[in-house]
Design a protein around this nucleic acid. Structure first.
Lengths: 193, 193
DNA sequence: CTCTAAATGTTAGTCACTAACATTTAGCGC
DNA sequence: GCGCTAAATGTTAGTGACTAACATTTAGAG
């Protein structure tokens, strides 16, 4: 769901710099004064750029926090689950595997983002809409492996909900490991064998 | 989560009439031209009223569709579950019981609303934010009955996600019974005994 | 039928976001 | 280093959701 308008791959580097400047400025301002109280204009100015330019990098204010490129990994992980298992279990195990494979160093940044999201009702909604894409992808995979669409949708939705809830809880704390938090969340829902 | 500014209970009836007019006009316009393409001004005009007045009845455009007074029933139902069961099961059974108790005649109206929501990404997000309140209430109840906050949050979130997913599937069709659809959705997640 | 509170209207403004068009600047080939 | 072009940014103007302060009408309790 990234919407950086990448026209010509690797033409310049200026683009990457302003992108980083905007992302940094946004995250800092959100943390300092809250998401709702922060204006797109403020972020742009802090990054030494115009409001218009902001929207050339992020289609919406919320996209500053909701750019997740994690979907493909997840799908592969789910596809790798044993077909004999019911869809719900396959989805859960896939999510477990995918997040266990996430590089540790990313955790702190994820934590900062998730914290802001958890604190902002508008963003919690946006988060869910964002996972809508992930959900669709999971459903596709489950159906391809023989599940009913209705069943697949419920399985995907509830597993993702557990994941997100786990992320929120994890982000509140300081020391817990991301992978462990996800494991614990999924254990609430799935009967471990 | 109703935000009709009810100042003096049962003082007049004009209020109820304009409220109904706005709700009807909104639903019809949404169905005819889509949610995003429908302007609050249009709804207001169709109801013979000013845009400003609309916002005196609904705090936001989305509230036309997301006014659910079902929470209290749900909480009672969850509280009535056997404490011996794990939180996840208690939440699921509570939801099941609550929706089984819903009066049949309400179904068609719910279907119209859910259909619009399901078709509109922005509303899917809003829907989730709206269930946030329900989620909080469920978590409170589960914790009061001895669950860990972390566990309770995951349980509540995933059960609600299953419920919503079930609602979306149900709304697509024409004839299925609401209660049955919810049952089926929850069966995907919970191991029935 | 009156009189007050409730209901509605008016005006003006903010913020997220879009579109069309003008201008600068960065970095490639030379 | 230097020019040239495409990429990056800016400008202006506008829409739609929503808020606030204040003025006006109207409905209905007495």
């Amino acid at each position: 769901m990234t919407d950086t308008p990448r026209l010509d791959p690797e033409r310049t580097t200026k683009r990457q710099r302003t992108l980083a400047a905007l992302a940094d400025a946004g995250l800092e301002l959100f943390e300092r004064q809250g998401y709702d109280a922060t204006t797109v204009g403020q972020i742009a100015r802090a990054a030494g750029v115009t409001e218009m330019t902001f929207f050339r990098y992020f289609a919406a204010k919320e996209h500053l926090l909701l750019d997740d490129p994690y979907d493909p990994v997840l799908i592969v992980a789910i596809a790798g689950q044993p077909r004999a298992d019911p869809p719900f279990l396959r989805a859960a195990s896939g999510v477990r595997a995918a997040w266990r494979a996430l590089p540790e160093p990313e955790a702190p940044m994820i934590r900062r983002r998730v914290r802001i999201i958890a604190q902002t009702p508008a963003l919690r909604g946006a988060m869910w809409r964002s996972t809508g894409n992930t959900e669709r992808a999971i459903v596709e995979q489950l159906v391809a492996d023989g599940a009913t669409p209705g069943v697949a949708r419920v399985a995907a939705a509830s597993v993702l909900a557990a994941l997100v809830a786990g992320l929120y809880s994890w982000a509140e704390g300081e020391d817990a490991s991301l992978a462990d938090a996800i494991e614990d969340a999924l254990d609430v829902i799935v009967v471990r064998r």
